[in-house]
Design a protein around this nucleic acid. Structure first.
Lengths: 108, 108
DNA sequence: CTCTTACCTAACCACTTGGTTATCTAACCT
DNA sequence: AGGTTAGATAACCAAGTGGTTAGGTAAGAG
């Protein structure tokens, strides 16, 4: 699978996006990351492995803790990819705008 | 599942992203969309249903054809989401830059 | 009316995913 | 040394995914 697919797949889970959001406030241990969710430790471990394979986090070692930190670089590719479609969602607004104008015309 | 998760999941497949890319050039029938890929018709049908449920395409009816057209509006949410992380990938560049500067310093 | 074309649905298969519990390692604390 | 804490791994399970083939429907063409 290509990098972009792996990234999108990693982002397709709300728990994983919440973990990323938490990591914007700074590094955190696995325990800290798992606190907001009522799922088991191993489940969190799996999510972290998915994020790590997608290159979205990196993990260090400090005694018995394995602190995670955000690495947002793959998200730039996501942003660039999405931005290429901007003219199409803009186009929809343009079309809607045209429709509304037409309706006003017909009203008169 | 929330809208964003469904959108990301839909985008996590290269075939589906290729279909979206093709649709930027204008509406297309299912047959036309399936041509570039050597997978069966039903497989394409499934991909289209995923895209439709994600709100990324709409489908009309014209005689025996069911023309698909792009609806990029869910991608705006994706772009906005990713943009919120811009400062973090920028931060990485900043850190890398600092590192390179430091290495140059040490070289002298 | 029959044939072909475009497309969908159903049933099936192998593989992946998101979760679990149970068990292990590694480091710190008495 | 023994106990606790942080975390990973293994084995398992239900549900979802991406593909297949077979068969169905609906519309245009001869």
């Amino acid at each position: 699978m290509d990098q972009l697919s792996v990234t999108f797949a990693a982002l397709a889970d709300p728990t994983r996006r919440a973990i990323l959001a938490r990591l914007t406030e700074g590094p955190a241990t696995v325990k800290e990351l798992s606190e907001p969710f009522d799922i088991s430790g191993p489940a969190i471990s799996k999510h972290l492995r998915v994020l790590e394979k997608a290159g979205l986090i990196t993990r260090g070692r400090e005694a018995q803790w394995r602190p995670c930190r955000l690495d947002a670089t793959p998200l730039e590719e996501v942003a660039v990819w999405a931005e290429n479609y901007r003219r199409f969602w803009d186009a929809n607004y343009a079309r809607l705008d045209a429709l509304l104008t037409e309706m006003k015309e017909n009203d008169r």
